[in-house]
Design a protein around this nucleic acid. Structure first.
Length: 597
RNA sequence: GGUCCGCUAGCUCAGCUGGAUAGAGCAACUGCCUUCUAAGCAGUAGGUCUUAGGUUCGAAUCCUAAGCGGAUCACCA
């Protein structure tokens, strides 16, 4: 029996007997008691004074007295300024813990038969992944896990933006300046190599613009007339016409990028159930655009370009096909969405994990899909997250202030290594064990740092702070797990194996033990909340609180010096559940926990 | 200019379905390792919750306006 529900029912009954007033159990709001007062649950009397026809203070006193006499769970109470603080019996806490200890998959919901699709990552294939992608990938992957924990069947997908003017830019630069360079010939990671040519393009492009401007051309026109830019445009057109030479180069260079991405995804610990490629969805989008013209939902301008008019929705007109027939970003997103709902007809929701600078884009996309008559358009949701800023300001790829994903992850692992070596606690580890530990710690620290913040908010990435191993960090939580693991190893050696009835005669609990049980009881609620709001930060915050609670207990109470066998077994059981919960909650964030560190 | 988002301790963030004296971490200062891992624990100090109105028994939380910062309004993705 859930503690909160028992209390709600008892309070409801009390209102009926004491005040002859009807108050439904599920309408009763209880809040956690502030730590400066005695008790665990607080009933705020003000809103109910109307029902009790007594002032809040009086209501609280009558209610408290009645509960102590009639409720099995209430031991004591105090009323402070209209707040009724309830102290529960230790038996109640032990009972609640027994249920948790016994639970099959505590905190997780059984399958609910619903399917959702979540998209994340979705990089362009013209440059390597960076810090912003890390937030995106960790967020999307974590939300997927959290939704699974809430009983959904989840499909993790991404759309790889493998075609378009951006990749053509890299291709042109490689044709002009590449001299046949390949990842094999230069030893460069494929995505880095292609990214270098994207930068090269931009440098040359700027030079050409400057030259044209010098000759008296307006900047805007120079941007369109620069020869290298025109070459990129030509390549795009040739690509859409599937000219073999261009198509092959495109395939080769994308192949290099995919090889590079694979390595990065593997390090990140992120994966996908299905990949969509823009190159194979944009044609469907084109068809839709043309069909839309026939249906009269879209219109064509004199130059042949296709547009949608959303002015009646408070938005603007939006281009869907260029005059030369080539498609834009929006075109392929229409095709992709349709394809996905065709592939997975049962999905009840599609979540797009994409930065908040694209809010307008998705707003428009969903409206277009609705206009085309797709009823599922309203089930599309843009999980919009904030930018990652650096202490030096915004990341700008063209100014070289981008934090590369591979470099950053490596740096985190290196730092974990240095810090661990300094402490010297795992000097007996084999090389492989040590390497694994450094990766668990370094990647964990990074993931936690990026996930503990509300995704909707923009956040500051301070490299100094991100590699901190104290305080509200993954290593702190991982350390707590390692400590518990040491205790459980010892308990195992001593043959202490608590079961459901091992602590039936336990007659008193310490405050820190009650605190842990209270926090554990919150876990299912937190998993649900994190799922409803697509907020891994709820889990991050929770698991930190749990670790803190355990560390206080660890510091205050000795386990193995305890003579009372019931108390000893209870503490082992409590430690077991905390370790499992830490492990599972961190798992929802994609963070592993070591048994020694 | 229109639309949207943010503003809480020196810094980074919780709290936001209205509840008590607004919480953590970092940084600073003070204690605690012959005891299950000190990557820890306990404590001190640090706040007109951007401002002004309003609703309410009660507002960091809801409403209105202003200020500051950001995003967006591309034949870029």
């Amino acid at each position: 029996m859930n503690i909160e529900k028992s209390l709600q029912q008892d309070i409801s009954k009390a209102f009926s007997t004491l005040f002859q007033a009807e108050l439904k159990a599920d309408e009763i709001a209880l809040q956690p008691t502030r730590k400066e007062f005695e008790g665990s649950h607080t009933f705020v009397c003000f809103p109910y004074a109307r029902l009790s026809k007594k002032n809040p203070e009086e209501t609280g006193k009558l209610l408290g007295t009645h509960l102590v006499e009639n409720s099995e769970v209430v031991e004591d109470f105090n009323v402070v300024k209209g707040f009724l603080n309830l102290v529960l019996t230790d038996a109640t806490w032990v009972g609640a813990f027994k249920d948790i200890f016994n639970a099959e998959n505590f905190g997780f919901q059984p399958a609910n038969g619903k399917e959702v699709m979540i998209e994340y990552s979705s990089p362009n294939t013209n440059k390597p992944l960076h810090l912003g992608h890390l937030r995106n990938n960790f967020l999307g992957w974590s939300v997927a896990e959290i939704l699974k924990a809430n009983g959904y069947n989840v499909h993790k997908v991404q759309i790889i933006n493998d075609r378009g003017i951006h990749i053509c830019k890299s291709m042109v630069a490689w044709q002009l300046y590449g001299d046949g360079e390949t990842p094999e010939s230069s030893g460069k990671k494929g995505d880095k190599l292609v990214g270098d040519y994207y930068v090269k393009f931009d440098q040359e492009y700027k030079k050409e613009i400057a030259e044209l401007e010098k000759k008296g051309m307006a900047k805007e026109q120079a941007e369109k007339e620069a020869p290298i830019f025109k070459k990129a445009q030509e390549l795009l057109l040739k690509w859409e016409n599937k000219e073999p030479e261009v198509y092959q180069l495109w395939q080769t260079m994308n192949g290099w990028v995919y090889d590079g991405f694979d390595v990065t995804y593997k390090t990140m610990g992120v994966d996908f159930d299905k990949l969509y490629y823009e190159s194979s969805t944009y044609l469907l989008g084109k068809e839709q655009a043309l069909e839309g013209v026939e249906k009269g939902v879209f219109f064509q301008k004199e130059d042949g370009s296709v547009w949608v008019d959303l002015t009646d929705e408070g938005l603007d007109q939006k281009l869907l096909l260029r005059a030369d027939g080539t498609s834009v970003y929006m075109t392929q997103d229409i095709g992709t969405a349709i394809l996905r709902f065709t592939d997975f007809p049962k999905i009840s929701k599609q979540i797009y994990t994409v930065g908040n600078e694209q809010e307008y884009h998705f707003n428009v996309l969903f409206k277009i899909l609705a206009k085309l008559g797709y009823s599922w358009a309203k089930e599309c949701y843009h999980l919009s997250y904030g930018m990652v800023d650096l202490p030096t300001g915004k990341m700008k790829s063209r100014e070289g202030t981008v934090v590369d994903a591979d470099d950053l992850m490596q740096e985190m692992v290196d730092t974990a290594k240095a810090h661990t070596a300094e402490l010297g606690k795992v000097d007996d580890f084999t090389k492989e064990q040590a390497k694994e530990l450094y990766e668990i710690l370094g990647l964990g620290a990074l993931k936690y740092f990026l996930l503990k913040v509300d995704p909707r908010k923009r956040m500051l990435f301070d490299p100094e702070e991100s590699i901190q191993f104290h305080g509200n960090t993954a290593p702190f939580i991982q350390y707590t797990h390692a400590r518990i693991s040491a205790i459980l190893r010892k308990a195992d050696q001593l043959g202490i194996k608590p079961d459901y009835n091992s602590f039936d005669n336990l007659n008193s609990l310490h405050g820190s033990e009650v605190g842990i049980i209270g926090t554990l009881s919150d876990y299912p609620k937190k998993v649900k909340e994190a799922g409803e709001n697509y907020s891994p930060d709820v889990i991050a915050q929770y698991v930190y609180d749990l670790a803190k609670d355990y560390n206080r207990f660890y510091q205050e109470i000795s386990i193995f010096n305890e003579e009372d066998q019931d108390a000893l077994k209870f503490r082992i059981a409590l430690s077991t559940v905390v370790a499992q919960t830490i492990q599972k909650a961190m798992g929802l964030l994609g963070i592993k926990v070591p048994s020694r560190m």
